[in-house]
Design a binder for these strands. Structure first.
Lengths: 112, 112
DNA sequence: ATTATAGTCAACTAATTGGTTGAGTAAAGC
DNA sequence: GCTTTACTCAACCAATTAGTTGACTATAAT
């Protein structure tokens, strides 16, 4: 595992360790939105949400596109995949048998 | 999602956002060990490693058992499963088709 | 042209984090 | 009984984090 991969996992897990940011991720899974729109449900300043979004963006979890005076955000899956891949190495400790089998089969398919 | 579940995810992702702690998790996946043994490979004080272990323990990721003058640690999978379950909700954003199918089938089996 | 909207930026604060050291305690070995 | 081992605990430090406010910029609407 390279130092960059480590830093990416640091950033990904760290970004996801905050409830506000996980809520933003959940919201973006339903589709692209602007910052103002994302911020509306939260009881905090736009600046605060903007900072959270910046953390997600720095971790590569969201893509922010400037469009006129609005910022349009969408979810990027690659870092999530890396996090799941890391966690999957320890699946023996948590997975139930059916799911484990399915993943095992999926991995064999993957490795072809 | 309850406030406790949120706090658990906060703790789990936060615990895993540090490379030293992820290395400890990786080491424990190979089997139970003592704190001294865990600390040996790291270029930091025993106290520092002890603190990292405490973070993992508080998050429920490791179980620490006092046995004589040594502390024996082992990996607990439940919080990892919860993290994976959360991440899996967004699998559409990162998963490849074969793996997705396998998980889908596993989930159907799970839901029975 | 004026005004409202969407957002950034800088400065500040309080709390948390990741590390240190030095002193202390409890169990094991000689 | 003395020494070593395996820790814990408290105090401290520097850096980071999550939030605030107030001032600013740029775009869109009237």
């Amino acid at each position: 595992m390279t130092v960059q991969q480590m830093a990416q996992l640091d950033a990904t897990f760290s970004a996801l360790s905050d409830g506000t940011r996980r809520a933003i991720v959940a919201r973006l899974a339903d589709g692209e939105t602007t910052l103002s729109d994302l911020a509306a449900p939260f009881d905090m300043s736009l600046t605060a949400v903007s900072k959270h979004l910046r953390v997600l963006s720095d971790a590569g979890l969201v893509d922010i596109e400037k469009r006129g005076r609005t910022r349009h955000c969408r979810l990027r899956g690659a870092p999530i995949k890396e996090a799941v891949d890391w966690l999957s190495k320890y699946e023996a400790f948590w997975i139930d048998r059916f799911d484990a089998l399915a993943r095992h089969l999926a991995k064999e398919e993957d490795d072809k």
